[in-house]
Design a binder for these strands. Structure first.
Length: 299
DNA sequence: AACCCGGGGCA
DNA sequence: TGCCCAGGGTT
């Protein structure tokens, strides 16, 4: 297939990002060559919606305690949820534990390298399957997270921020940009994510440090539109999510059953909300009743 | 497609 | 204090 000028320009920009990443990549434990596929998988689950700086210490503890899927699968789910600590979205901890069980039951305790097989595991969606295939096994895949979407959106399409949801067209464009060789594809995946995380940030991009500055359509057109862009803030104070988090924090700290509805630390929460949140945590399988008569609960 | 789910740290 | 973030699962 002949290379059109547009493709050549794409490839040049991709190469710029790869070269930048080779200089600027952070030294993270799950990027080291001695990190197992399991270590990569654990990091990817933890990094879903949680920044690197908060993940790293928890990841180290987790890998020291459960260095293989079989180790985690043999643990109690409650211990996994407790070890998750304050990373947030504790359902991820439950799913990671379920993933370890599935790896033992379906795959002999090994992390599969096939993207579709990964996709079938608990807690692994399109992004994580592509990321594990690339970073754990060096395979060519389309790694498309919010950082990559922002980089492509700005540099190629002149958009200040990506749309709320991925479109088929956006994914197709991202797929076109992935280099042919697996090595370059992996470097592009990691580099474009890193660029989005460190330079091409959502709120205050550091365009002066960007390897794509001379190619970026958004910068060429004035780098405007951030102020007018709609925010995607999720409410927090007083929400069910905050109440659920407070209940989980109490149960993580306790190693004996806890009376939630009569707990002094939760007195400021309206009883109806407290009860419904506790019920939702039980429904999610994160919390279980140790003594329903007395209202005692554990992880 | 819409909705729900944590939490910390920094501008 | 406002705001941002390496998504996935359910309905």
């Amino acid at each position: 297939m002949p290379t059109t000028p547009q493709h050549a320009r794409d490839a040049s920009m991709v190469d710029e990002v790869i070269a930048w990443f080779s200089r600027e990549a952070r030294d993270l434990p799950w990027r080291r060559s001695d990190c197992s596929p399991w270590g990569v998988l654990v990091s990817e689950i933890m990094l879903q919606q949680t920044p690197v700086v908060r993940v790293e210490p928890v990841w180290r503890e987790w890998m020291a305690r459960w260095p293989t899927p079989a180790d985690l699968a043999a643990a109690e789910q409650g211990d996994a949820v407790r070890a998750w600590g304050r990373l947030g979205y504790p359902r991820r901890a439950k799913r990671l534990w379920e993933c370890a069980v599935a790896l033992v039951e379906r795959h002999g305790g090994e992390v599969p390298s096939d993207e579709d097989t990964l996709l079938a595991l608990p807690g692994i969606g399109a992004y994580t399957a592509a990321a594990v295939a690339a970073f754990a096994f060096g395979q060519r895949s389309v790694v498309l997270d919010t950082n990559v979407r922002r980089v492509i959106g700005r540099a190629w399409n002149g958009l200040p921020l990506p749309a709320l949801h991925q479109t088929v067209g956006e994914r197709a464009h991202a797929a076109e940009l992935v280099p042919a060789s697996p090595e370059a594809a992996v470097a592009w995946a990691a580099g474009s994510m890193e660029l989005g995380a460190l330079v091409c940030t959502a709120r205050a991009p550091r365009c002066g440090e960007c390897p794509l500055a001379s190619d970026c359509r958004w910068l060429a057109e004035g780098a405007t539109g951030l102020e007018a862009a709609p925010r995607r803030v999720q409410p927090w104070h007083g929400t069910d999510r905050q109440v659920r988090g407070r209940i989980m924090a109490l149960l993580r700290a306790a190693h004996v059953p806890v009376n939630i509805s009569g707990h002094a630390a939760l007195e400021d929460i309206e009883p109806g909300q407290l009860d419904s949140c506790l019920e939702s945590l039980v429904a999610d399988g994160l919390v279980r009743a140790a003594d329903a008569e007395r209202g005692l609960y554990v992880l």
